[in-house]
Amino acid sequence: MTDTADMMASLDWSGTSIRVTPRHGLSAIRLKATKRGRTLAVDLGLPATGGATEDAIWIGPDEWLLLARPAEEGAIVARLAAQQAQGACYWSAIGDGLVILDLGEAGGLVSQLTGLPQASFALGRAARTRVAGIAVLFAGMSWGTRMIFDRMYDRHIRRWLDAAAE
């Protein structure tokens, strides 16, 4: 079976193909603020509701997904551990349990996939929705749209993409 990124890049959606870059090596950390951690977002520079940066994506009330390069992971974990020690948050390392794909100039495609307006994937915006019946996270980046989903659904997504293209 081909890689999901290859498959997405080879799809023809209304005559448009897209550029897909898999982001291997990024570690994911799921972070949730406690009631005592009301200032966590400010303290850690996390995006506000519905927001996304290259390193952090808002995924729910008081909840973020942090993406760390291997060299930075230790420092991030240390900061989180310090916050957790103060009772401000809890976090859990997801490691490589997520598939992270960067889609270039794919706003139209993602809008068609999800039924959400293109504005939902504008730069700095995050959207949690469903594709192919599974939960998928989208974030608007400067190069296009970042798509993130559970690795255990990788094969399902590939099959679905194959069937869903025209």
Binding site: A132, G133, I134, D150, M152, Y153, D154, R155, H156, R159, W160, A163
Partner: peptide
């Protein structure tokens, strides 16, 4: 096989 999302 796509009727219900399957996890591997």
């Amino acid at each position: 096989p796509l009727f219900r999302p399957l996890r591997h």
